[in-house]
Amino acid sequence: MNAGRDAIQGRSVPRGFPDGTPVNALSFDVEDYFQVSAMAPYVPRAAWDRMERRVAANTHRILDLLAEHGAHATFFVLGWVAEREPGLVRRIAAEGHEVASHGWSHERVGALGPGAFRDEVRRSKALLEDLSGTAVIGYRAPSFSLDAGEPWAVPILAEAGYRYSSSLHPIRHDHYGDPHAPRFPFPRGHGLLEVPVSTVEVGGRRLPCGGGGFFRLAPYRYTRWALRRIHAEGRPAVFYLHPWELDPAQPRPRGLDRRTRVRHYLNLRRTEARLERLLRDFVWDRIDRVVALPAGALAHAC
């Protein structure tokens, strides 16, 4: 009861070990390299089935790493991927990881509109539950696109049976983000808890430290320092990566602009080694076990 009350008040409650070791939330957005929003001008959706799929092999490698380090994570699986790689979803669930939804088509929430959004979150949830044999209660919007501009999406998620969203990156960015959003989990209404990706504040400025391209671009020591700073605030970190970020051999579509090339491909060769260091330096678990969910959510997940 206390955990549920704390969550409703916006307080994230970390699950710890007897020695006080912080337990952080690790997550992966299971999509392929050609499905990234920045690739949309170069690889239209109509061409997706003609592209070389690499997401299964890359995700299997991540699962191997997690098994080696005794860690668990949340996998936000795109419905398009789950439909074509059902064995991957089954393995994720069988090894004790959380299966959650990343929508179906990797279209931004605002671009979908209420009707298509409702169809996508219901369709993906149903497929993932069928494949995994577990309740799907978590959702992450493609490109962190569930911001203040789409208030209609929150009741749709709640009605579909989701209990938390991890769809906000509370920073200023040209593709996504809300720099005014809370840094730590907070209630979005309708019984839905929002779990933002981690950031730190330094000198009044908010800095990203929760993974993705920032993990590849910044030195590893910055991430380690930032996560420890979050722990000093009494909070667990919320971190994410994509399977394609461990794949330096992935194809490169023609005609990419310079910004996309830099953001997508820089330091891909370093990501796997950095992830291994992260798994050694910190303790990681699923979002649904690290963050206290609203009252009733944990019972729904069992």
Rank of each mutant, 00 (worst) to 15 (best):
A56E: 13
G133Q: 02
D130H: 15
A181N: 07
G115C: 15
R108C: 11
G133L: 03
F184S: 15
L66H: 04
D147C: 01
A181H: 04
A56N: 11
S165T: 08
H69N: 05
D64C: 12
S145L: 01
G149L: 10
H175S: 10
G113T: 03
S145G: 01
T134Q: 15
S105G: 10
Y139Q: 11
E159I: 00
A135G: 10
V55D: 05
H180T: 14
H169I: 02
P185A: 11
A158W: 00
A71G: 07
I137H: 14
G115F: 12
K125G: 08
A73F: 03
Y164C: 12
A56L: 09
G96Q: 04
H175D: 09
A56H: 13
L66N: 07
A153F: 01
V109R: 01
H60E: 14
N58P: 14
V121R: 12
D174L: 07
F117E: 07
R118Y: 02
D119A: 14
H169P: 01
Y139N: 13
A56Y: 06
H72N: 11
R122A: 14
R61H: 15
Y162L: 11
E95L: 00
E95M: 04
G161D: 07
V121E: 15
R91C: 05
F75V: 06
G70W: 02
G133T: 01
A71C: 10
E120N: 13
T59H: 09
D174C: 05
I156V: 13
L157D: 09
G96Y: 00
L127M: 13
W104D: 13
A160C: 15
L65K: 07
E150I: 04
A71S: 11
A116Q: 04
A100H: 01
D119K: 04
P182N: 04
N58L: 08
A94I: 07
V55E: 08
F184R: 13
S132I: 06
I156F: 08
